[in-house]
Computed example of a mutant assay.
Amino acid sequence: MKPIDIWLLVYPGFVLLDATGPAQVFATANDEARDAGLPEPYRIRLTAPGGGLVASSAGVGVMTAPLPRAGRALAGATLIVAGGRGLGGGASPAQDPAPDPAIVRWVQRAAAGMDGGLGLRRCCAVCTGAFVLARAGLLRGRSVVTHWMDAAALQAQHPELRVLDDAIYVKDGAYYTSAGIAAGMDLALSLVEEDRGRGAALDTAKRLVLFFKRPGGQRQFSSELLAQADPQGLHGRLTGWLRPRLKRQIDVEQMAAACAVSVRTLHRRLRQEAGVSPAQLLLRLRMEAACGLLERPGMSVKRAASQSGFGNEYNLRRAFAAQLGVVPSAYQQRFG
C-alpha cells in the first residue's frame, strides 16, 4: 500500500508537542508495522512557510520543508495544523494576533476540493490550530474543539461553529480538531485506528505508554468556570452567592431573589452571559467543589459528596459519570 502522507504545519512559536506528539504516534505506528514485516504506513513531514529551521515556543527548533503546492503533492494526504501563540486564541488581538494570512490562504488552497474527493483526505488541527481552520472558513457549521482555555474565544470569534468544551477530539466529516497539546496524540491515535484498525492503534498506544481511549473529557483537567464571566455581571454575582451555600438545598426562586431579578430574567441573562441555566451553573459549581475536595490528601468520596452539596456518594458518582466520564475514585487516583 502507498504510504499516507502526514503534513504537520508549524510556524515560529508553535507548541512543540502539538507537532512532535502526533509525529511520534505515526512514527511508532511505522515501527509497529516494520517489526511485523509490513511496509511503513506513514510518511511524515514537517512544513512551514519558507521551510528551514523553525523555533517552537519551548525554544527547540525543528527542520521543515517549504509548504507544498496544493494539488498533486497533497492528494490523499493528512494535514495537521499545530497550535501556539499567534493564532488568535487570546482574549484580544493585543494578547494574540490573528493567524498569518499567508498560512490561512495556503490552508484554504490545500483544502480546496476535499468535499469532492480531491486534494487532502483529512484536515486536522491540534489545540489553537483550530483558529487557522476556522479563519480559513473550513469549519463553518461544524462541531469543533480546542484547548479549554481558548474555547470561549473561538466561539466568540466564530459563532458559526459548534464549539464543544469537553471533548478530547472531534471528527466532523473530513475535519478533525483536538483539545490542547497532549490531546493531539489522542487524535493521532484515532487516525491510526481509522487507517489500520483497532489492533494496530492499540499496539501503538501500548508502545507509547498511552491511554488508547482516554477516560473522561478535558473538564477534568481544568477549573470548570475559570474566568467565564465578569464578576460584576449577574453570572459572577450569582456564582459568588452560590459558592458558600453549595451544601444547602437551593432552588431557582432563591437564586433569582438573591440577584433581585425574576426567574425568567435569571434564565435569560445566564444564557446570554455564560450559556448555562441556573441548574447547570449550580451543578458545575458543585462539580468544581467536589473535584477540589477529591484532590486533597485523605479526603473520602463520602465526605466530598457531603461537603460539595451532592449529599451522598450515589449522587456524586452519577454526576461524575455524566459530566467527566469517570467515577470519583478514578478522578481521585489520578489527581489526588
Results as ranks from 00 to 15, higher is better:
L161S: 09
C124R: 09
R122C: 04
A188R: 04
M149R: 15
S143Q: 12
G197P: 10
G199W: 09
Q155S: 12
A188E: 06
G184H: 05
A179P: 07
T177S: 07
Y169W: 15
G137D: 05
P159Y: 09
R122V: 00
R196M: 12
D166R: 14
I168F: 03
A156G: 10
K206G: 01
L202T: 08
L187M: 13
F131C: 12
S178T: 08
A182I: 12
Y169R: 10
L202S: 08
V163Q: 06
A151F: 01
D166V: 03
L133W: 14
L164R: 13
A182P: 15
Q155G: 12
R142A: 12
A205E: 01
A156F: 02
A200E: 13
T204N: 11
A188H: 07
S143M: 10
F131H: 11
D186G: 10
L138Q: 10
M149T: 09
G119L: 06
K206C: 12
V170L: 14
M185C: 02
R121W: 01
L161M: 09
L120S: 04
G129Y: 14
K171N: 03
A156E: 01
K206L: 15
L133G: 04
A134Y: 11
T204W: 00
M149Q: 14
A125G: 09
A125T: 05
A201C: 04
V126C: 08
L202F: 04
T128G: 06
L187P: 06
L120M: 10
S190N: 06
S190P: 00
V132L: 13
E194N: 07
S190M: 12
L161G: 03
G119R: 07
G129Q: 11
A201T: 02
V126N: 02
I168L: 15
L138M: 08
D172T: 02
G141T: 08
R140W: 00
D186K: 04
G199A: 12
A134D: 07
L202R: 15
D172L: 02
A182K: 02
R162M: 10
D150E: 06
A200L: 11
V192D: 10
G199Q: 12
R162S: 07
R198M: 04
G141S: 05
V145E: 10
C127K: 12
Y175C: 11
D195I: 05
V145D: 00
L164S: 13
K206Y: 12
S190C: 07
A188C: 08
S143C: 07
R142H: 03
L187C: 06
V163L: 12
W148Y: 15
A200N: 07
